[in-house]
């Protein structure tokens, strides 16, 4: 009972850890390159969820100041700001990896990582 209560108190963090593990599992077990990119995106999303959850204060409102009113609790504005930067970096990484994948498909005719490795090793033997 104690453990379940603790887990419910940290439910966002537990969710982000679970998402991270799901993304890592996708990256590790699938040999399709597109699925690997999807796994990396899931991992990035879990990190965003973790950061934004750290900044949350229960009862707090969005950090936009209402002039002339005291005793309002605002949530921590710093993690949200840092995550805005992170989202842009995630977008750039996704675009770069997609363009590399398209180039690989044009060279080898397949998206499968194992088959690409076989084709490369065949080419080196000759």
């Amino acid at each position: 009972m104690e453990l379940i209560k603790e887990l419910l108190d940290h439910i966002n963090y537990v969710g982000s850890a679970t998402l991270f593990v799901i993304g890592l599992y996708t990256v590790l077990t699938h040999s399709n390159l597109l699925k690997k990119v999807i796994g990396i995106n899931i991992m990035e999303t879990s990190i965003f969820l973790f950061f934004v959850s750290i900044g949350y204060i229960s009862g707090g409102i969005t950090p936009i100041i209402i002039p002339g009113s005291e005793d309002i609790i605002y949530v921590n504005p710093l993690p949200s700001t840092l995550i805005l930067t992170g989202i842009v970096v995630a977008l750039s990484i996704t675009a770069y990896s997609l363009s590399l994948i398209m180039r690989l498909y044009k060279e080898y005719g397949t998206l499968d990582m194992d088959k690409i490795m076989e084709l490369r090793s065949d080419g080196q033997d000759e």
């Binding site: 603790e6 887990l7 108190d9 940290h10 439910i11 966002n12 963090y13 537990v14 850890a17 959850s53 750290i54 949350y56 204060i57 229960s58 009862g59 707090g60 609790i73 921590n76």
Partner: peptide
């Protein structure tokens, strides 16, 4: 994670 302060606590 369970060692962290609870979600939304003010003494985070």
């Amino acid at each position: 994670i369970l060692e962290m302060p609870a979600l939304g606590s003010i003494d985070n």
